[in-house]
Simulated assay, not measured.
Amino acid sequence: MDQSTENKQEILCIGSVLWDVVGRATIAMRAGSDVPGRIQRIPGGVAMNIAMALGRFGLQPSALTAIGIDPEGEELMAACTRLGVDTTHAYRSPDLPTDQYMAIEGANGLIAAIADAHSLEAAGARILSPLRDGPLGTSEAPYEGTIALDGNLTHALLEEIATDPAFARADLRVAPASPGKAERLLPFLRHGRATLYVNLEEAGLLCQQIFDTSEEAASALVARGAKRALVTNGANPCSDGNADGVITAAPPEVLVTRITGAGDTFMAAHMAAEISGMARGAALTRALEAAAIYVSGELPS
């Protein structure tokens, strides 16, 4: 397969591309709160959030996902084009409606969220056809670029990917879609093929223990088989662990105005920094700075 310099700058983002419906209030909320705020409907999903962030960092994101052939899907495809996310290889089905995600955020963080990614799960391995049967790669000539993979895929499909020859030469970066889906990443601990991007809670779920610091969590994930693990912990220090040890850095202090998409921005910024040639410590710092700018609201949604 042709791996020209231009193609090597393209990143495949595999997972959810859907509509985010996010309600945000500027005051603290609790269960049952009924307060004024703003409601937005914007393109989202873990794979989409990562892809949009990669585009802001000068890379060429392409999404492997499932998008319905319905009015919502056509509108989403057009939005992806406007935002610089290539959906040429997206799986389209008239039988599967376009997925969506709903979240409520207050000044005290995420209050509740519901992810409806049933169409992505139903599409299953069909979204991977371009990597298995061409034009992006095959088992005999695997894709050699960078792949961002999100945990909205089913556990069975993630298990397949962890050992699939079509992914053997890729720089595979994986993130759970939410703490509730963190355990879907267990195959990547067993097979040691991927870099994991998780928060402290997700790391605890994967290791079945409670961690006080990101450093402890990153070390434990590597000990359990992860090739590499980056663990965030909100405004507290973040850690990057691999076979050479664990490094830690603290995020800048900012006023938090939004939460949804922060982890995806961190992951995309870190990937972009390393692709540009930054050393491990510098890449971690750059990613934390980018995430801080995002949660402060200085970048557009």
Score class of each variant (00 low, 15 high):
residue 102 M to R: 09
residue 104 I to Q: 01
residue 105 E to A: 02
residue 105 E to G: 01
residue 105 E to H: 00
residue 106 G to C: 05
residue 109 G to M: 05
residue 109 G to I: 08
residue 111 I to H: 00
residue 112 A to S: 11
residue 114 I to N: 05
residue 116 D to V: 14
residue 118 H to Q: 15
residue 121 E to W: 14
residue 122 A to I: 09
residue 122 A to L: 09
residue 122 A to V: 08
residue 123 A to N: 02
residue 123 A to C: 04
residue 126 R to G: 10
residue 126 R to W: 14
residue 128 L to I: 04
residue 130 P to G: 01
residue 130 P to F: 00
residue 130 P to Q: 01
residue 133 D to E: 12
residue 133 D to I: 09
residue 134 G to W: 02
residue 137 G to W: 03
residue 138 T to H: 10
residue 140 E to M: 14
residue 141 A to E: 14
residue 143 Y to D: 06
residue 144 E to T: 15
residue 144 E to Y: 15
residue 145 G to N: 04
residue 146 T to W: 14
residue 146 T to K: 05
residue 146 T to F: 13
residue 146 T to E: 06
residue 150 D to G: 08
residue 150 D to T: 05
residue 153 L to T: 05
residue 154 T to I: 04
residue 157 L to M: 08
residue 157 L to C: 05
residue 160 E to L: 14
residue 161 I to V: 06
residue 163 T to D: 07
residue 164 D to T: 07
residue 165 P to W: 07
residue 166 A to Q: 06
residue 166 A to L: 08
residue 166 A to W: 07
residue 169 R to T: 15
residue 169 R to F: 11
residue 170 A to L: 05
residue 172 L to G: 06
residue 172 L to E: 01
residue 173 R to V: 13
residue 174 V to C: 06
residue 175 A to I: 11
residue 176 P to C: 02
residue 178 S to I: 11
residue 180 G to C: 11
residue 181 K to H: 06
residue 181 K to Q: 01
residue 182 A to Y: 09
residue 183 E to D: 12
residue 186 L to R: 12
residue 187 P to D: 00
residue 188 F to H: 07
residue 189 L to D: 02
residue 191 H to I: 10
residue 192 G to C: 10
residue 193 R to V: 13
residue 196 L to Q: 00
residue 198 V to S: 00
residue 198 V to G: 00
residue 199 N to V: 10
residue 201 E to H: 11
residue 202 E to P: 12
residue 203 A to I: 11
residue 203 A to Y: 11
residue 203 A to G: 08
residue 205 L to Q: 04
